[in-house]
Design a binder for these strands. Sequence first.
DNA 1: ACCCTTTGGTGAACCGGTTCATTGACTCCC
DNA 2: GGGAGTCAATGAACCGGTTCACCAAAGGGT
Lengths: 334, 334
Amino acid sequence: MKVKDVAREAGVAVGTVSRVLNDHPAVTRELRERVEKAMAHLGYEVDVTAQSMRAGRSRLVACAIRDFDIPRFALFIKEAEAVLREAGYTLLLASTTNRPDVEIALLRAFRRRRVDGVMMTLSDEQHLDVREALSEALMPVLLIDRDRIEALDRVTADHREGARLATSHLLDLGHRRIAMLVGDLNAFPSRSRLEGFRAAHAAAGIAPDPRLLRDDVLSSEDAYRATASLMSLAERPTALFVAAMDMLGGCLRALRTMGVAVGDGISVVAGSDSDLAELHTPPITAIAWDLAAMGRHAATMLLERMRGDEIERGRGLTVPTQLIIRGSSRPFAS
Amino acid sequence: MKVKDVAREAGVAVGTVSRVLNDHPAVTRELRERVEKAMAHLGYEVDVTAQSMRAGRSRLVACAIRDFDIPRFALFIKEAEAVLREAGYTLLLASTTNRPDVEIALLRAFRRRRVDGVMMTLSDEQHLDVREALSEALMPVLLIDRDRIEALDRVTADHREGARLATSHLLDLGHRRIAMLVGDLNAFPSRSRLEGFRAAHAAAGIAPDPRLLRDDVLSSEDAYRATASLMSLAERPTALFVAAMDMLGGCLRALRTMGVAVGDGISVVAGSDSDLAELHTPPITAIAWDLAAMGRHAATMLLERMRGDEIERGRGLTVPTQLIIRGSSRPFAS
DNA sequence: ACCCTTTGGTGAACCGGTTCATTGACTCCC
DNA sequence: GGGAGTCAATGAACCGGTTCACCAAAGGGT
């Protein structure tokens, strides 16, 4: 079942069938109808593989993120997929497990598949091998919540401002020993959160205690351990900013285990909002931003780039963050 | 940059290069090394599209689920992807939005892409057009948490037993007016949960009040509305079984809005476990099962089927469910 | 009546691999 | 010494579309 068969059935040339398939204008209505009837009659369906082969593009867009089971990322993917599907693209999914070697291997695999565009996170924007792989990618790449690679488009959230707001909020409440849990400082989100944290302290003329900073918190178990270790310090923090995404669960679990009451014993601010933050007792103050919008923008920007529109290189789009103040952050009573 | 170029550089025939690429045994070590050196020297990379074209298979596996932003499904996908990648396959992702027409369109799109295998959910296993599309799919299809299509492999969770346990638990506590929120009864999970719910009632010799059943609860907003409407009844339920996946948030939000205390005012059991259920005050009794294992099994079974192993049609694998009893389910005090 | 342009249609070449019938060289054994 | 058998290597054909140089017919202008 191929164009040849359809052509024979309709009594036309293969080129004409191809024209009909691709809505080429130079086909008379009569022939178009005959061809369409033949296709319907034979139950013909184009072979996208063959099309890709000739065209050199696959109508595939790859999305590689560090770990799917970050619930809120699903929103991003969902919206991106919807936009891409609308435009005739199919989404390829992979997880990098936040490892540079996997990121490089995936870029190569995508190129072998003639993927038309890629959106991805990076474990470390400065990693030389990754930067080299990106520059040899041959297809447009858009960074998800990463920056520092000037030539590439990116969609980010304003984590710096979110962290600054959260930290100022705690400082305003009188807290002076604020602990912070962040992820990998080699990547944009945690780096900017730390900047915001420091900026807020600087603005208040207060020096943060470096012993209260825990980075590399990448899983809920990490958050559990980090919280437990912080609460075992001789001089405990009075407030805890769980800035890494989706780490609130581990943190709350640790506080519960250690018998520390959220709100009274320690103020808590979450770096990303969730049902858990909203419905906890007390409800948890949290930073929120629109991941669905990020997904839509990412897909749209990548589509523009893939169309080859004449656009300046390295466009960046930043979605704002906001602080939702709830009952878990309370004035510090000495 | 193609096999031809590599062949010229190495001074061999294209067929030999292809043999090297595919680890064909009939190549002398000397030639293999010459070819490999030539490939490295030219920076050659195979074109997977061309391979697919000739081979008639794409090394792509599609996964279509009703909605990605069900956080727990991410676990399934993550594990499935890991298994498939290990085996040299790439995962294609799509969401069906739980609509039969989208399901059919996706199956067609997958076939056009020569996808090697599909794992998917269905909005309604009995839908005739979908069944026809499935039978014409030409590639192995595995159902995710769906049954009733005898010819297809499937991986399910034992929702019936989970719901039976949860309901018996509530009945044992003395509850007689148990409300239930489920999703689409045309699909396996909700159907089985309802069966389990009824089986538990039957075993206890109690007839459930049909006015306390709310089906088609598919979003957190649905759950909010359903809970609000249940709590507005003249004869309120004394227990609430939120059996649909990831609907607990909406339900708790409604109870909070209406000033009903979980545990005291109403006992609550969640159909799937989560950080929210575990860390809520009081913690919520919930049904748990291993979605990661489901993902692994799904990928493994599909791989076997794609290898064309001689296996009986329509294998089913069921992962067990368990009830985690927490503080939200309490004895009914009249 | 003649030439020029426009329009619709044709089919061979091409995309970049894999496959397989064929060839040539070498070994083995009677 | 010669026939059978084994093994590497070769390269043309093929997978199923799209493209484009080319052609025929129709239309337009003088």
